[in-house]
Amino acid sequence: MIDLATWNLTIPVGVPAAVIDTPILAGGYQDDYFQSRDGRIFFWAPASGSTTNNSVYPRSELRETYADGSLRNWPYSAANNMLSATARITQVPGSGMLAFSQIHSKQNTSPPLMLGYQYSPQSGYGNVVIAFRGHPADADSTKIVLSNKIRLDQDFSYEIHLAKNGLLTIGLFEPGGAVKTWSRSLNKAWASHGLYFKAGVYTLDNSGNETNAGAASFSQLKVEHR
């Protein structure tokens, strides 16, 4: 069972998109965009959904909080910060792309890290892609393909580790047991930023009707600050 006591949830309804506070979410909240059952949590975000103020794309996505619902924003130097998860991408929009995890910043609209999935209908597999922004002022993120062997509806596990010294490490555990890793250091300009983890579905498409959507489920999701 995934503990939802330290997350809130953004869903793609309302203007701007609605936020479900932590106590309500942890109390068993369910809707068309988020479900929790059989030990898994399910996210769905149609391309036609509403967006947050600083985005053009819809999301059904968790955001890190404290148990009372107040937002949790941490300097990376205060602890070793880890997110570990087992996820399954079940639908991609027409663009073929969605994001399933982020490290975001309170002070910047562009995150230092986004983990995405890009499906290729020609191969039948999807790429797990890292979008890394080493400095807060960088205009664009650097894109790194970590794996090209993840099918739709197939579980994979991953870890995000941002150490006290700013070293960011991504570990991906492919179906079949192969392990892929990638590391890079954040620029020290990020040290003054309040950072937070996100997980769920951020649908990187905003065209078409609600049949054009991103969806995913998680059977494991855990955050630690040691």
Rank of each mutant, 00 (worst) to 15 (best):
N165W: 01
D38E: 10
N54Y: 02
A99N: 04
S217Q: 10
S207D: 09
M114Y: 02
H225A: 01
R88N: 07
I41T: 09
G96F: 02
A17H: 09
G96W: 07
A178V: 15
K106M: 09
S217T: 11
Q122S: 11
R37P: 08
P58A: 03
K198T: 11
T86F: 02
N165M: 12
I150P: 00
N80I: 04
P136K: 00
I11Q: 06
Q220L: 14
L204I: 13
G176I: 10
P93Q: 13
G200K: 02
N80T: 15
N73F: 09
T169P: 00
G14T: 12
Q122N: 15
N209V: 12
D155H: 06
A78W: 00
A178Y: 07
N165L: 07
I89N: 08
A18W: 02
F34P: 06
Q220T: 05
T86E: 08
F34K: 03
V128K: 00
Y76R: 01
A139T: 15
K106N: 11
P12D: 08
A45C: 09
E61W: 09
L25D: 01
A137Y: 14
K164H: 08
Q154E: 15
R63I: 07
V56S: 06
S84A: 06
A137M: 12
A26C: 15
E224S: 15
R151I: 07
G177E: 06
G28I: 14
L115G: 01
S219H: 05
V129Y: 13
L98Y: 05
W44F: 07
A139Y: 13
T109R: 14
S50G: 12
G27R: 04
N209P: 02
T203I: 12
S123I: 09
T181Y: 08
P23S: 11
R133C: 03
E159W: 06
A47Y: 07
K149E: 05
F100K: 08
P136M: 03
L113I: 11
A26F: 10
A99K: 00
D205Q: 11
S70A: 04
S123K: 12
K164I: 12
V56E: 14
L152V: 13
T142M: 14
T181V: 12
P121S: 12
A189L: 09
A85H: 09
L115I: 13
S55P: 01
D38C: 06
Y196K: 00
R133I: 04
W190D: 02
A139L: 14
T51R: 06
Y57W: 05
S101A: 15
P93A: 04
P111Q: 06
V129M: 14
S77G: 00
L195A: 03
G94S: 14
Q35S: 13
H135A: 10
K143T: 14
L221Q: 07
L71G: 05
Y125S: 08
R72A: 04
T109W: 10
N53I: 12
T6Y: 10
L62Y: 01
E61V: 01
S105Y: 02
L186T: 01
P175Q: 10
V92K: 05
S147A: 14
H135N: 14
